[in-house]
Amino acid sequence: MFLEIDHLTMQFGGLIAVNDVSINIEKGEIHGLIGPNGSGKTTIFNVLSGYYKPSGGKIIFEGRQISGLSAHQITAAGFARTFQNMRLFKSMTVMENLLVAMGYRAKVGLWQEIFNPVAVHREEQRFTEKALELLDLLEVAEFANELAISLPYGHQRRVEIARAMATDPKVILLDEPAAGLNEIETEELRKILTNIHERGITILLVEHDIKLVMEACEIITVLDYGKKIAEGTAVAIRKDPVVIEAYLGKEGNQ
């Protein structure tokens, strides 16, 4: 198994945010994670990216337990993420944002970093080229030297995905990437997802835009009140009475 979330439980004080959830994710798949607000999606992301230590259960990635590692170690293991409320580094240009994400792969050591300008220069060039390629992929290369947070909203979303890609991940966690995007931008996002997918990167997607999830994801897991209530293809999920009751039904009532 590529990525295995095994009986994961996450508790804050008396509140159980995630309750005994197990999800298996195959290499290279686009896996959707949906559920009403407060169903524990983002909490699962935060455990996966190492912000929280799980209260129970574990996460196995490529045969190795990664739950309990700190966030930067998990990034080094091959995880990258974006944030619901976009967290680009506010003092940095688009390029610098990407360079930060590449930093931990640097081969130049700390002392060289300070005392060997030639090696540093060479590495910076290598990183810059790679970053430009990623920015090209996400069609924001022209803004490379602009302050990231000065870009329009849709572009910032793309920069954030590019920044996650810059860590050279095996799995990418996208936390509501379509939030705040209009229809055209969402359609472009779908193409971007396909592009990332074609590069062999596994995608885990939390999203409120059901249409996008149904179209893009191969497997969908549905959560409600911290519990997994269903899992399957888009077609199966759409027909599942439990899901309709718990999730789609609620949406319909609103």
């Binding site: 190492g50 680009l88 580094f89 506010k90 930060v100 994400a101």
Partner: peptide, 10 residues
């Protein structure tokens, strides 16, 4: 700039 985001970027 952003402590949590920095962690996630390795």
């Amino acid at each position: 700039d952003d402590f949590q985001a920095a962690r996630a970027m390795g």
